[in-house]
Nucleic acid binder design. Structure first.
Lengths: 197, 197
DNA sequence: GAGGAACTTGACCGCCCGGTCAAGGAACGG
DNA sequence: CCGTTCCTTGACCGGGCGGTCAAGTTCCTC
């Protein structure tokens, strides 16, 4: 993960400040409307500081994106770790995704934007495909075990991702309903959708 | 729908040209990176022409958005018109949405972007809520009739929208699979998700 | 305390943005 | 052929953009 650059603790903290503030600005105003001047102003430093830590606004955004993806993945893996049943693993993964999205509204909004922008869409797809592969794996196992009717696991995985994304956006982010409730509803809908009892 | 402005046939055609080219540019490059200069250059006219027909780049985008929304709605209504059964109406509506999205890739991408931008998110939500209300209505009827287990119809409607959106994006737009097949799969998943036999 | 690496400053650069406008051409009714 | 309305032009404006850089400050090392 390290970019090779040597940073003192002070530098490390500055960098983190910039990332944090940029994330919040990108999420609230959007990527394009947020200028580098806005970012450094919010942290209270000169413009040159930004380019000491990042080579461009674009590079910073990608870094935030990749960091968020791997953080979410880590959370999902942890939630799944001690489960054996494929359908339980699937449901736990979905729940973990919803809960993570509830706790990281800013990062979730960044995903949403990045997916619609040609410059970042590939990075989003690459990150997604990792998560999707996990789901495909569980779905495949469930089909093999006769727990759900045969179907293309990849399509099912995409459908599940679609439900999680839009329902989380609407109910957790927009209406502020409890993430746990929403996660339960999403998991239930998805289990029905794939044909589980 | 008419903005009150008087336009000769010639003017009407120019306007349509600008809308068409702007739509394609917005969809491929994105809204912010597309400049008014890009739009008029593609049509081969001076910059002033743009501001003769539209008061701003933003206004043009909103017009495209609203037009697309009502076009999609019209298509959905037509597909549903001669069906009585609530679940059939629901499935037909979903299929119509997928097929429309397949035939209007540009407009579909505009929806996706607009939903992530504060300036346009409200317009998107307003348009969506119309479609969602239709779905809620059918779901409510289906629950009343005991065709599906009781649940919050609004949440189910959002889940259905999520499946349609993401699966269409991935399989129809990205992989170029036949829209009919994808529409079938989406409808099947959604019926399972809401608990229909 | 000398020296050098890490960090910071903010004026500056070239560019392009959304939007304006005075002026000029086409179309058409009278 | 005139007058008017519709349409078109493209130079121009103020301003903000992403990005640079010479100069300065802080901090650690020896």
């Amino acid at each position: 993960m390290s970019t090779g650059r040597r940073l003192t603790p002070r530098g490390e903290e500055r960098r983190a400040q910039l990332i944090a503030h940029a994330t919040s600005l990108f999420a609230t105003r959007g990527y394009h409307p947020t200028s580098v001047a806005d970012i450094v102003e919010g942290v209270g430093v000169g413009k040159g500081v930004f380019y000491w830590y990042f080579s461009s606004k674009e590079e910073l955004f990608v870094e935030i994106l990749l960091g968020a993806q791997s953080d979410m993945r880590r959370r999902q893996q942890r939630a799944i770790a001690d489960l054996d049943d494929p359908l339980e693993r699937l449901a736990a993964g979905v729940r973990a995704a919803v809960l993570w999205s509830a706790e990281h509204r800013d990062l979730f909004r960044l995903f949403e934007f990045a997916a619609t922008d040609d410059t970042f869409a590939d990075a989003v797809r690459r990150g997604r495909s990792v998560m999707l592969n996990d789901a495909v794996h569980h779905l495949h196992a469930a089909i093999e075990a006769g727990r759900i009717p045969p179907a293309d696991p990849e399509r099912l995985a995409h459908a599940i991702l679609g439900v999680s994304t839009l329902v989380t956006l609407e109910y957790v982010h927009h209406r502020g309903e409890p993430a746990e409730d929403v996660a339960d509803m999403v998991a239930r809908f998805c289990l029905g959708g794939i044909g589980a009892a």
